[in-house]
């Protein structure tokens, strides 16, 4: 019969129309500013810089190696290396970024900076409502705005952060063991200086 499909379709839309007033579970949309959907763990928006401890300047993991700056496809990262050094996450003396800016109006959230970072210093944030009335200055994030604690990283990406923490702890332990071994070796040499000193003197 001609027009049968049309009538079926009309019945379907009518059912939706009246049903949406009765059954709230029919409504698939979320009223955004008031309600938000729970975020999935793999969500990502823009990069941020991780720091350990409570002082964001002391604990910053970034060593200003500038790999992310070079790898960034849209070139939205600007880094200036410091003149002096400070201990990094694993305890080595390293440079730190004097300036670290990300222009999130340019950033395309590709996560390449995160992939290339050898120091686990830059990670993807999940914050997505970043409206501002200044489209140039307001969207250029500086070092302090970018710095976020490791605890924050653990809350937004728990699994990933746990793996990173484990890897870092292992590395730190390795460094400490090395330092301890070096110290032990030093102590051993100091314990019998009468033999060691002339030997070393001879070798020089």
């Amino acid at each position: 019969m001609v027009g049968e499909g049309i009538l079926k379709g009309l019945a379907e839309t009518a059912r939706n129309f009246f049903g949406s007033y009765v059954g709230k579970d029919r409504l698939t949309t979320v009223q955004y500013p008031e309600e938000r959907l729970p975020q999935i763990e793999a969500a990502r928006s823009f990069p941020f810089l991780v720091y350990d401890g409570s002082d964001w300047q002391q604990g910053m993991r970034c060593v200003a190696c500038q790999i992310c700056e070079k790898e960034c496809p849209p070139k939205c990262i600007l880094i200036e290396k410091s003149k002096d050094k400070k201990p990094d996450a694993v305890g080595k003396q390293q440079f730190y970024p004097a300036v670290f800016d990300i222009d999130i109006s340019v950033c395309m959230s590709c996560q390449i900076c995160v992939e290339v970072c050898p120091f686990e210093a830059i990670k993807m944030d999940v914050e997505y409502d970043l409206p501002t009335d200044d489209r140039f200055g307001g969207l250029l994030l500086h070092k302090q705005q970018l710095a976020k604690s490791n605890e924050y990283y653990n809350t937004i990406h728990p699994t990933e952060a746990a793996a990173v923490d484990a890897a870092l702890a292992e590395e730190r332990a390795k460094v400490e063991a090395k330092a301890r071994a070096a110290a032990a070796a030093k102590a051993a040499t100091e314990a019998k200086p009468s033999q060691a000193q002339p030997a070393s003197g001879e070798s020089r």
Binding site: N16, F17, G19, S20, Y21, R26, L27, T28, T29
Partner: peptide
């Protein structure tokens, strides 16, 4: 409004 309701929107 009507189209929204037919598509289960507000």
């Amino acid at each position: 409004k009507g189209l929204g309701r037919m598509q289960n929107r507000l």
